[in-house]
């Protein structure tokens, strides 16, 4: 076989004749999901049952545009960038904890405030774990690695938040009673306390929203933005009012992750609407279905805010959360 010199390639051949050399982010993200819209089936053996799952919930989703590969994460995160970013943020959290461990600030919290935390804060790892699970579902179903990576990093951010909540729960338990760190304390509140049931119902249903478009819209456009608003904004504010500066700062730190989620989600929603304006109806159908559910959940969760030692009116919690939720939908073009 004769050797023939090929013209020096600018980039991967699958990216075609590009006008500019793709960035490093694009080179390690573009066109990785060979199985999306692959004929005759996504996966090599047509008899694999997951072909039907993907054909139904991904290729068969009403959430379609001609090409998802032009979507870009506004932060253009590669894995390397993601861990570098979160290494910095976690270093900050380590120092925040150092400072409060040194001053033993948790020991100084009042019994009444600890009681509020028992009801409102300690069970949080359960619902936030469901956000992690659904984030990974969106990641594994998304039609482009540009979307998958955003969703997977978001799921890892949930893990991050849960772990710091777990750590601070143990700090609380060491200062105010071991029972606070018992699984049963969080689990029984999550399973039985009326405050949590509307949220649990919403999230258990979110787990089975298997259409990938619906999963994305329900999670990232409706449920998570509202739940994040309650946890990272309202609860942070409530902690500050009650002199728990550690928790206030810790939860406020997670606003950065929430903002990143909102930004890429809004960009993806706008991308989809830009490519296929008819999707407005589909997306608004989903937001209309999920908004009342999360509103009911927020309303139930708002009650303990009212009852905290220095309270935050439940109506204010609901309205401020609603405002954030609406702002987000507006940013999404909905």
């Amino acid at each position: 076989m004769a050797t023939r010199q090929r013209q020096q390639p600018k980039t991967w051949s699958l990216l075609g004749d590009v006008r500019r050399r793709p960035s490093a982010y694009e080179a390690v993200t573009a066109k990785f999901h060979y199985h999306f819209r692959r004929e005759p089936t996504p996966f090599e053996h047509p008899g694999m049952p997951l072909n039907d799952w993907y054909l139904r919930n991904r290729e068969g989703s009403p959430f379609q545009v001609d090409d998802w590969e032009d979507f870009r994460d506004p932060y253009k995160l590669t894995y390397k960038d993601y861990v570098a970013l979160q290494h910095d943020r976690e270093t900050y959290v380590d120092k925040l904890i150092d400072r409060h461990e040194e001053s033993a600030s948790v020991e100084g919290l009042s019994d009444e405030w600890v009681s509020t935390l028992r009801e409102l804060y300690i069970p949080l790892r359960f619902p936030l774990h469901i956000l992690q699970m659904v984030g990974l579902y969106v990641g594994q179903m998304a039609p482009s690695a540009y979307i998958t990576n955003c969703a997977n990093f978001q799921a890892a951010d949930e893990l991050r938040r849960i772990q710091r909540i777990a750590y601070s729960t143990k700090m609380l338990a060491n200062a105010h009673g071991d029972e606070l760190a018992a699984t049963a304390t969080a689990r029984s509140a999550w399973e039985k306390d009326p405050v949590w049931q509307p949220l649990r119902e919403t999230l258990e249903n979110l787990l089975i929203a298997y259409d990938w478009g619906e999963a994305f819209v329900a999670l990232n456009l409706v449920v998570k933005p509202s739940l994040d608003a309650v946890v990272n904004w309202r609860l942070s504010e409530l902690a500050e009012r009650n002199g728990d500066h550690f928790l206030a700062a810790l939860l406020a730190e997670f606003q950065q992750d929430s903002n990143r989620s909102r930004k890429w989600s809004a960009d993806l929603a706008q991308y989809a609407l830009g490519r296929q304006p008819d999707l407005r109806q589909v997306m608004e159908g989903w937001t209309a279905a999920w908004t009342p559910r999360i509103e009911a959940a927020v309303k139930a969760l708002a009650q303990p805010f009212d009852e905290a030692p220095v309270g935050l009116a439940a109506t204010d919690v609901v309205s401020a959360t609603g405002t954030q939720a609406r702002d987000h939908l507006q940013a999404c073009g909905l």
Binding site: R125, F126, A166, K170, A181, T183, R187
Partner: peptide
């Protein structure tokens, strides 16, 4: 505190 991260 590890078990509190994995008992959900």
């Amino acid at each position: 505190w590890y078990d509190l991260t994995r008992d959900m």
